[in-house]
Amino acid sequence: MIPLLSAEWLKLRSVRSTWLNAAAVVVLLALCGLWSFAVAGIWDGRPPAERAAMRAAPPEYPMSLALPLCTGVLGVLAITAEHATGMIRVSLAAVPRRGRLLAAKAGVVAAASLAAGLVAFTAAALLGRLIVGGRGVAEFHRPVGEEAPWIASLCLLVVVSALVGLGLGAVLRSTAGGVAAVTALLFVLPTLVTTVAPDPWNERIGRLLPTSLFAQLADRTGTMLDDPLPPAAAGALLVGYAAAALAAGALALARRDV
């Protein structure tokens, strides 16, 4: 398996789309910085008596919205770019056991996403602290015991997004289709469920979506949910999304001609 992982790692880093994704992370980090400056500005503009009650989204908020989409696209492209360019035939001629090829891709995409998540979320949180400085905004000064599980949950979300993207890409074989499916799962469905489904179904369905599960995993749903899932169940369900998508992708890849 090591040679296959090494080959897939080279494939991933030798195409421009991967580095465009990395550039997007840098832009998102800058957005996190801007958000931190904005929070600092609001703090400074308020009379000291009102400052204690000030609530703000945490510094990594812009990153947590967009990074899952970035890694989702990374996962989609890892397989659909091969279909689009005909590389898949060359790849499968070298690795005829298709499940192994998909497993190697999953390993590399997951590792790259995990690394990106760890670096990006930690950097965003540190940047926020640096910019907000001594101002007492609670969300910018969480204790490590609270911060670590939150970032870990976010990292799981970006890894799951990447693997769901890979699985859906293997099923759909189309970059446009795969990206649309990932976007629907991460952005469209949550909004749709919140706005369209009647109470209490909006919460019952909404809490099962990945973008909600990660917060339940970190046990930090705040006022978002009345009846959150236990963290273990939320984590299992989140991993289940990746497993189901990969299983479907493996089946599609094994069954169909290329």
């Binding site: 080959a7 494939k11 590389m87 060359v90």
Partner: peptide, 18 residues
């Protein structure tokens, strides 16, 4: 067949590594 982004050398190295 092959990703247009990749250099000729990297294309072959991707296969060689397997």
């Amino acid at each position: 067949a092959g990703h247009g982004d990749r250099t000729a050398r990297d294309h072959l190295r991707c296969l060689a590594r397997t």
